[in-house]
Protein backbone atom coordinates (compact mmCIF):
# COMPACT_ATOMS: atom_id res chain seq x y z
CA UNK A 1 0.00 0.00 0.00
CA UNK A 2 1.41 3.37 -0.92
CA UNK A 3 2.28 5.84 1.86
CA UNK A 4 -0.32 8.25 0.51
CA UNK A 5 -3.09 5.68 0.91
CA UNK A 6 -1.79 4.82 4.39
CA UNK A 7 -1.98 8.46 5.46
CA UNK A 8 -5.48 8.95 4.05
CA UNK A 9 -6.69 5.78 5.77
CA UNK A 10 -5.19 6.90 9.07
CA UNK A 11 -6.80 10.32 8.77
CA UNK A 12 -10.19 8.73 8.17
CA UNK A 13 -9.74 6.41 11.16
CA UNK A 14 -8.61 9.29 13.37
CA UNK A 15 -11.51 11.48 12.28
CA UNK A 16 -14.32 8.95 12.65
CA UNK A 17 -14.55 9.03 16.47
CA UNK A 18 -14.61 12.84 16.37
CA UNK A 19 -17.38 12.75 13.79
CA UNK A 20 -19.47 10.22 15.71
CA UNK A 21 -19.19 12.02 19.03
CA UNK A 22 -19.64 15.42 17.38
CA UNK A 23 -22.83 14.50 15.54
CA UNK A 24 -24.30 13.00 18.72
CA UNK A 25 -23.50 16.07 20.77
CA UNK A 26 -24.89 18.26 18.01
CA UNK A 27 -28.31 16.64 18.36
CA UNK A 28 -28.13 17.00 22.15
CA UNK A 29 -27.26 20.67 21.86
CA UNK A 30 -29.86 21.29 19.18
CA UNK A 31 -32.44 20.24 21.76
CA UNK A 32 -31.05 22.87 24.12
CA UNK A 33 -28.92 20.69 26.38
CA UNK A 34 -25.20 21.24 26.83
CA UNK A 35 -23.62 17.92 27.82
CA UNK A 36 -19.97 18.51 28.69
CA UNK A 37 -19.65 14.84 29.61
CA UNK A 38 -18.76 13.65 26.09
CA UNK A 39 -15.26 12.68 27.21
CA UNK A 40 -16.70 10.59 30.06
CA UNK A 41 -19.30 8.84 27.91
CA UNK A 42 -16.69 8.22 25.24
CA UNK A 43 -14.13 6.67 27.57
CA UNK A 44 -16.82 4.42 29.07
CA UNK A 45 -17.73 3.35 25.55
CA UNK A 46 -14.07 2.59 24.92
CA UNK A 47 -13.65 0.39 27.97
CA UNK A 48 -17.01 -1.35 27.54
CA UNK A 49 -16.36 -1.96 23.85
CA UNK A 50 -12.92 -3.35 24.50
CA UNK A 51 -14.08 -5.47 27.42
CA UNK A 52 -17.07 -6.99 25.66
CA UNK A 53 -15.06 -7.76 22.54
CA UNK A 54 -12.21 -9.17 24.63
CA UNK A 55 -14.50 -11.50 26.59
CA UNK A 56 -16.68 -12.66 23.68
CA UNK A 57 -14.14 -12.35 20.88
CA UNK A 58 -16.71 -10.52 18.79
CA UNK A 59 -16.09 -6.92 17.80
CA UNK A 60 -19.78 -6.56 16.90
CA UNK A 61 -20.74 -7.26 20.52
CA UNK A 62 -18.06 -4.78 21.51
CA UNK A 63 -19.70 -2.12 19.39
CA UNK A 64 -23.09 -2.79 20.97
CA UNK A 65 -21.62 -2.70 24.47
CA UNK A 66 -19.93 0.62 23.69
CA UNK A 67 -23.22 2.13 22.54
CA UNK A 68 -24.99 0.85 25.65
CA UNK A 69 -22.30 2.20 27.99
CA UNK A 70 -22.47 5.66 26.44
CA UNK A 71 -26.26 5.62 26.57
CA UNK A 72 -26.27 4.63 30.23
CA UNK A 73 -23.91 7.44 31.14
CA UNK A 74 -26.13 9.84 29.21
CA UNK A 75 -29.16 8.51 31.10
CA UNK A 76 -27.56 9.54 34.41
CA UNK A 77 -26.91 12.98 32.97
CA UNK A 78 -30.45 13.25 31.62
CA UNK A 79 -31.96 12.28 34.96
CA UNK A 80 -29.93 14.89 36.84
CA UNK A 81 -30.19 17.80 34.45
CA UNK A 82 -33.70 17.24 33.12
CA UNK A 83 -35.55 15.65 36.05
CA UNK A 84 -33.65 17.25 38.91
CA UNK A 85 -32.74 20.39 36.94
CA UNK A 86 -29.12 20.35 38.12
CA UNK A 87 -26.57 22.71 36.60
CA UNK A 88 -25.68 21.35 33.15
CA UNK A 89 -22.09 22.55 33.13
CA UNK A 90 -21.28 21.05 36.52
CA UNK A 91 -23.15 17.82 35.80
CA UNK A 92 -21.32 17.39 32.50
CA UNK A 93 -18.00 17.83 34.28
CA UNK A 94 -19.11 15.27 36.86
CA UNK A 95 -19.95 12.84 34.07
CA UNK A 96 -16.47 13.23 32.62
CA UNK A 97 -14.73 12.81 35.98
CA UNK A 98 -16.84 9.74 36.84
CA UNK A 99 -16.33 8.22 33.40
CA UNK A 100 -12.56 8.63 33.54
CA UNK A 101 -12.44 7.13 37.04
CA UNK A 102 -14.87 4.29 36.44
CA UNK A 103 -13.31 3.28 33.12
CA UNK A 104 -9.89 3.19 34.80
CA UNK A 105 -11.23 0.89 37.51
CA UNK A 106 -13.10 -1.38 35.10
CA UNK A 107 -10.24 -1.47 32.62
CA UNK A 108 -7.54 -2.22 35.17
CA UNK A 109 -7.40 -5.87 34.11
CA UNK A 110 -7.53 -5.06 30.41
CA UNK A 111 -4.28 -3.11 30.35
CA UNK A 112 -1.78 -4.84 28.08
CA UNK A 113 -4.31 -7.39 26.80
CA UNK A 114 -4.51 -7.95 23.06
CA UNK A 115 -7.55 -6.31 21.52
CA UNK A 116 -10.03 -7.49 18.94
CA UNK A 117 -9.91 -5.42 15.79
CA UNK A 118 -12.93 -4.49 13.80
CA UNK A 119 -12.31 -5.89 10.33
CA UNK A 120 -12.16 -3.65 7.30
CA UNK A 121 -14.48 -4.20 4.39
CA UNK A 122 -13.16 -6.44 1.65
CA UNK A 123 -15.29 -6.42 -1.46
CA UNK A 124 -13.74 -8.74 -4.04
CA UNK A 125 -12.56 -6.70 -6.98
CA UNK A 126 -13.50 -3.27 -5.66
CA UNK A 127 -11.36 -3.16 -2.51
CA UNK A 128 -8.31 -4.21 -4.53
CA UNK A 129 -8.48 -1.26 -6.92
CA UNK A 130 -5.47 1.01 -6.68
CA UNK A 131 -5.87 3.99 -4.30
CA UNK A 132 -9.68 4.19 -4.61
CA UNK A 133 -10.07 0.56 -3.51
CA UNK A 134 -8.84 0.75 0.06
CA UNK A 135 -10.03 4.32 0.62
CA UNK A 136 -13.56 4.05 -0.75
CA UNK A 137 -14.30 0.32 -0.49
CA UNK A 138 -11.94 -0.88 2.21
CA UNK A 139 -12.86 1.00 5.38
CA UNK A 140 -14.30 -0.60 8.48
CA UNK A 141 -18.12 -0.58 8.70
CA UNK A 142 -18.25 2.20 11.28
CA UNK A 143 -16.66 4.69 8.91
CA UNK A 144 -19.58 4.23 6.51
CA UNK A 145 -21.98 4.30 9.43
CA UNK A 146 -20.58 7.61 10.70
CA UNK A 147 -20.99 9.24 7.31
CA UNK A 148 -24.49 7.82 6.84
CA UNK A 149 -25.40 8.93 10.35
CA UNK A 150 -24.31 12.49 9.64
CA UNK A 151 -26.40 12.64 6.48
CA UNK A 152 -29.40 11.14 8.26
CA UNK A 153 -29.08 13.54 11.20
CA UNK A 154 -28.83 16.46 8.80
CA UNK A 155 -31.93 15.30 6.96
CA UNK A 156 -33.96 14.59 10.10
CA UNK A 157 -33.03 17.89 11.76
CA UNK A 158 -33.85 20.13 8.83
CA UNK A 159 -36.40 18.23 6.74
CA UNK A 160 -38.65 16.32 9.09
CA UNK A 161 -41.21 17.11 11.74
CA UNK A 162 -39.14 15.34 14.42
CA UNK A 163 -36.22 17.60 13.60
CA UNK A 164 -38.44 20.64 13.76
CA UNK A 165 -39.61 19.60 17.22
CA UNK A 166 -36.03 19.09 18.42
CA UNK A 167 -34.98 22.50 17.12
CA UNK A 168 -38.09 24.16 18.55
CA UNK A 169 -37.35 22.72 21.97
CA UNK A 170 -33.76 23.93 21.71
CA UNK A 171 -34.61 27.41 20.50
CA UNK A 172 -37.61 28.18 22.66
CA UNK A 173 -38.60 25.60 25.23
CA UNK A 174 -41.44 27.74 26.57
CA UNK A 175 -43.13 28.00 23.17
CA UNK A 176 -42.62 24.31 22.47
CA UNK A 177 -44.14 23.51 25.85
CA UNK A 178 -47.11 25.78 25.15
CA UNK A 179 -47.67 23.92 21.87
CA UNK A 180 -47.96 20.67 23.81
CA UNK A 181 -44.50 19.29 23.12
CA UNK A 182 -42.99 17.40 26.04
CA UNK A 183 -39.75 19.34 26.37
CA UNK A 184 -38.24 16.96 28.90
CA UNK A 185 -39.05 13.92 26.79
CA UNK A 186 -37.58 15.37 23.60
CA UNK A 187 -34.47 16.48 25.46
CA UNK A 188 -34.09 13.11 27.18
CA UNK A 189 -34.14 11.30 23.85
CA UNK A 190 -31.69 13.78 22.34
CA UNK A 191 -29.30 13.38 25.28
CA UNK A 192 -29.54 9.58 25.01
CA UNK A 193 -28.79 9.77 21.29
CA UNK A 194 -25.75 11.90 22.05
CA UNK A 195 -24.62 9.35 24.63
CA UNK A 196 -25.06 6.45 22.22
CA UNK A 197 -22.94 8.25 19.62
CA UNK A 198 -20.25 9.18 22.16
CA UNK A 199 -20.16 5.58 23.39
CA UNK A 200 -19.83 4.34 19.82
CA UNK A 201 -17.05 6.85 19.23
CA UNK A 202 -15.22 5.48 22.27
CA UNK A 203 -15.77 1.93 21.08
CA UNK A 204 -14.31 2.92 17.75
CA UNK A 205 -11.12 4.01 19.50
CA UNK A 206 -10.64 0.73 21.36
CA UNK A 207 -11.87 -1.54 18.55
CA UNK A 208 -10.62 0.09 15.36
CA UNK A 209 -8.26 3.02 15.94
CA UNK A 210 -5.95 1.39 18.47
CA UNK A 211 -7.42 -2.02 19.36
CA UNK A 212 -6.35 -2.10 23.00
CA UNK A 213 -7.27 -0.51 26.30
CA UNK A 214 -5.17 2.34 27.65
CA UNK A 215 -6.36 4.41 30.59
CA UNK A 216 -7.68 7.83 29.49
CA UNK A 217 -7.29 6.67 25.91
CA UNK A 218 -9.80 9.25 24.68
CA UNK A 219 -7.11 11.87 25.42
CA UNK A 220 -9.40 14.87 25.14
CA UNK A 221 -11.20 13.75 21.98
CA UNK A 222 -14.53 14.21 23.72
CA UNK A 223 -13.65 17.82 24.36
CA UNK A 224 -12.47 18.29 20.81
CA UNK A 225 -15.83 16.91 19.64
CA UNK A 226 -17.54 19.54 21.78
CA UNK A 227 -15.42 22.24 20.19
CA UNK A 228 -16.26 20.77 16.81
CA UNK A 229 -19.97 21.41 17.34
CA UNK A 230 -19.26 25.08 18.04
CA UNK A 231 -16.86 25.20 15.11
CA UNK A 232 -19.58 23.74 12.87
CA UNK A 233 -22.15 26.32 13.99
CA UNK A 234 -24.43 23.41 14.99
CA UNK A 235 -24.66 22.07 11.41
CA UNK A 236 -24.10 18.32 10.86
CA UNK A 237 -22.38 18.48 7.49
CA UNK A 238 -19.95 21.07 8.82
CA UNK A 239 -19.21 18.75 11.75
CA UNK A 240 -18.10 16.23 9.14
CA UNK A 241 -15.79 18.74 7.46
CA UNK A 242 -14.42 19.82 10.85
CA UNK A 243 -13.88 16.24 12.04
CA UNK A 244 -11.79 15.39 8.99
CA UNK A 245 -9.80 18.61 9.32
CA UNK A 246 -9.09 17.99 13.00
CA UNK A 247 -8.29 14.34 12.33
CA UNK A 248 -5.88 15.37 9.58
CA UNK A 249 -4.07 17.80 11.88
CA UNK A 250 -3.44 15.05 14.42
CA UNK A 251 -2.22 12.58 11.81
CA UNK A 252 -0.02 15.08 10.00
CA UNK A 253 1.75 15.64 13.31
CA UNK A 254 2.69 11.98 13.37
CA UNK A 255 3.67 12.03 9.73
CA UNK A 256 5.96 14.99 10.35
CA UNK A 257 7.48 13.04 13.23
CA UNK A 258 8.03 9.96 11.08
CA UNK A 259 9.59 12.03 8.32
CA UNK A 260 11.86 13.55 10.95
CA UNK A 261 11.32 17.28 10.94
CA UNK A 262 13.38 17.66 14.09
CA UNK A 263 10.45 19.15 15.96
CA UNK A 264 9.91 17.69 19.45
CA UNK A 265 7.27 14.94 19.51
CA UNK A 266 5.43 16.69 22.33
CA UNK A 267 4.95 19.75 20.18
CA UNK A 268 3.38 17.70 17.42
CA UNK A 269 1.18 15.87 19.93
CA UNK A 270 -0.09 19.19 21.21
CA UNK A 271 -1.13 20.35 17.74
CA UNK A 272 -4.73 19.04 17.88
CA UNK A 273 -5.33 20.92 21.12
CA UNK A 274 -3.75 24.14 19.89
CA UNK A 275 -5.62 23.91 16.60
CA UNK A 276 -8.85 23.38 18.54
CA UNK A 277 -8.23 26.57 20.51
CA UNK A 278 -7.40 28.48 17.34
CA UNK A 279 -10.49 27.13 15.57
CA UNK A 280 -12.67 28.22 18.49
CA UNK A 281 -11.11 31.67 18.39
CA UNK A 282 -11.65 32.09 14.65
CA UNK A 283 -15.22 30.84 14.68
CA UNK A 284 -16.16 32.81 17.81
CA UNK A 285 -14.78 35.97 16.34
CA UNK A 286 -16.75 35.58 13.13
CA UNK A 287 -20.01 34.59 14.85
CA UNK A 288 -19.64 37.58 17.14
CA UNK A 289 -20.06 39.76 14.06
CA UNK A 290 -22.94 37.72 12.61
CA UNK A 291 -24.71 36.87 15.85
CA UNK A 292 -24.56 33.54 17.65
CA UNK A 293 -25.65 30.41 15.82
CA UNK A 294 -26.16 28.49 19.06
CA UNK A 295 -29.63 27.17 19.96
CA UNK A 296 -31.22 29.97 21.96
CA UNK A 297 -32.04 27.82 24.99
CA UNK A 298 -28.69 25.99 25.08
CA UNK A 299 -27.80 25.17 28.67
CA UNK A 300 -30.91 26.73 30.14
CA UNK A 301 -32.90 24.68 32.65
CA UNK A 302 -36.56 23.99 32.03
CA UNK A 303 -39.11 23.16 34.67
CA UNK A 304 -42.60 22.60 33.29
CA UNK A 305 -45.20 24.54 35.19
CA UNK A 306 -48.44 22.71 35.72
Amino acid sequence: MSPFVEVVLTIITASTPLLLAGVGELVTERSGVLNLGVEGMMVMGAVAGFGAAFVTGSPAIGVIAAILAGTMMAAIFAFLTLKLVSNQVATGLALTLLGLGLSGLIGDNFVGQPGVKLARLAIPGLSDLPIVGPIVFGEDPLVYLSIALTIIVSHVLFSTRAGLVIRAVGDSHASAHALGVSVVQVRTLSVLFGGACAGLAGGYLSLAYTPQWIENMTAGRGWIALALVVFASWRPMRVMVGAYLFGAVGVLGFVAQAVGLGVPAQFLSSLPYIVTVLALVVISKSTRARGSQAPACLGQPFVPDR
Partner: peptide, 30 residues
Protein backbone atom coordinates in the same frame (compact mmCIF):
# COMPACT_ATOMS: atom_id res chain seq x y z
CA UNK B 1 -9.61 34.75 24.27
CA UNK B 2 -13.03 34.89 25.91
CA UNK B 3 -12.98 38.66 26.26
CA UNK B 4 -11.50 39.45 22.85
CA UNK B 5 -13.22 36.85 20.69
CA UNK B 6 -15.93 35.22 22.79
CA UNK B 7 -14.27 31.78 22.60
CA UNK B 8 -15.80 29.43 25.16
CA UNK B 9 -13.52 29.43 28.21
CA UNK B 10 -14.52 25.92 29.27
CA UNK B 11 -13.13 24.37 26.10
CA UNK B 12 -10.06 26.60 25.73
CA UNK B 13 -8.96 26.27 29.37
CA UNK B 14 -9.36 22.50 29.15
CA UNK B 15 -7.41 22.22 25.88
CA UNK B 16 -4.57 24.17 27.47
CA UNK B 17 -4.25 21.47 30.15
CA UNK B 18 -3.01 19.05 27.53
CA UNK B 19 -0.67 21.63 26.05
CA UNK B 20 0.79 22.42 29.50
CA UNK B 21 1.34 18.76 30.30
CA UNK B 22 3.07 18.15 26.98
CA UNK B 23 5.26 21.20 27.58
CA UNK B 24 6.30 19.82 30.97
CA UNK B 25 6.92 16.43 29.41
CA UNK B 26 9.18 17.96 26.77
CA UNK B 27 11.15 20.02 29.32
CA UNK B 28 11.91 17.19 31.73
CA UNK B 29 12.82 14.79 28.93
CA UNK B 30 14.77 17.44 27.03
Amino acid sequence: LKVKTGANEILTSLMLVYVAQLLLDWLVRG
